[in-house]
């Protein structure tokens, strides 16, 4: 399978030429930093060449779509599985009008940690294009092979939403949702659940000490799209600005609960966190409970209604 950049460009150009969209959101190369791709918007067909689609397109795009479409802009979005689900989260939350986005699905073979590749194999960036060989990315024409086991971004290592669902159009290449690097979405959750309670607390406390509470996890999250966040309120001041075990607990507990049943498992919080806080282990715990307790299948796929916005008469009653 190849990273069909020309095909992506052609699709983007066609959307713009046919006036199906006012702009296309994708990624561009950072001219100063060979390994970096940042979100980029193209407004004219002649500039689609600025877009890039290769194994280094790390940033998720969904959250940006929210602000971009506020003024009624019609936006074409290059969407991997994670981006597409994020956009759908925002659509179901009435943050994006469905008719304002055109989702151009890109089956995703996983993204590489660019800095790491740059440090260990800078010549990889001489590539003119890339092919996906399952366990490796292969640079064209240099033939340099990057093993995914070593270079996959954390969020992509654990990804189970590779296939772009519910898109207007999917770039016709083969691929699927299956990620050989993540057999069990809930592995880490189960491991933590099996720890004795005091050790579980110690595990999280260790992370609370490292969390800077910079809110990158919240800001990057497509499910965290409230107009004003309860954690920013002063009255009542649920989250005091003082940083201690209790306030960190409140922050992470509340964040996890507020995305319970709404998280699309895009892994952006995990990617954004500078200190590597295992936010995914909280999010996936919530997903697992949605499955276990309420029988929600695929709790990461946004639906019209949310698991915590409904109930069943026979919901378990385990409060004894």
């Amino acid at each position: 399978m190849s990273w069909a950049l020309p095909a992506v460009d052609a699709l983007a150009a066609r959307l713009l030429e046919d006036r199906l969209v006012d702009a296309v959101l994708g990624w561009a190369r950072d001219p100063d930093l060979p390994w970096q791709r940042y979100p980029h918007r193209v407004d004219e067909p002649s500039r689609v060449g600025e877009l890039v689609w290769d194994p280094f397109c790390a940033p998720g795009l969904a959250k940006l779509v929210f602000r971009m479409t506020e003024g009624g802009l019609k936006l074409g979005v290059l969407a991997r599985g994670c981006d597409a689900l994020g956009v759908w989260r925002l659509i179901h939350d009435r943050r994006i009008a469905r008719e304002n986005v055109y989702l151009l699905g890109l089956p995703c073979p996983g993204m590489a940690d660019g800095v790491r590749v740059w440090e260990e194999c800078p010549e990889a960036f001489d590539a003119a294009g890339w092919e996906d060989h399952g366990s490796h990315w292969v640079a064209v024409p240099t033939g340099i092979r990057l093993p995914k086991e070593r270079f996959l971004l954390d969020k992509c290592l654990q990804c189970q939403v590779r296939w772009p669902r519910q898109c207007d159009e999917v770039l016709a290449v083969q691929g699927g949702s299956w990620n050989p690097f993540c057999e069990d979405r809930y592995r880490q959750v189960r491991q933590l659940e099996e720890l004795p309670l005091p050790q579980r607390f110690d595990f999280w406390r260790g992370w609370f000490e490292r969390c800077l509470r910079c809110f990158a996890c919240r800001q990057v999250c497509p499910a965290c799209n409230c107009e004003s966040c309860s954690l920013d309120q002063f009255e009542p001041n649920w989250l005091e600005r003082e940083v201690g075990v209790a306030t960190q607990f409140i922050f992470h507990f509340t964040r996890a609960l507020h995305v319970a049943g709404r998280c699309v498992d895009c892994g952006e919080c995990q990617r954004a966190c500078p200190v590597g806080f295992p936010l995914g282990a909280l999010n996936r715990k919530m997903m697992k409970d949605m499955e276990d307790l309420f029988g929600v299948r695929e709790p990461f796929v946004p639906q019209e209604s949310e698991p915590l916005g409904e109930f069943a008469l026979d919901d378990p009653d385990e409060f004894r």
């Binding site: 309670l197 579980r200 406390r205 715990k285 409970d289 949605m290 307790l293 109930f311 919901d315 378990p316």
Partner: peptide, 17 residues
């Protein structure tokens, strides 16, 4: 609704120690 929400809350509390 409270039952659902608090079920999840209780499990999350336990998960976080």
């Amino acid at each position: 609704y409270a039952r659902r929400r608090l079920l999840v809350t209780r499990r999350l509390l336990a998960y976080m120690g």
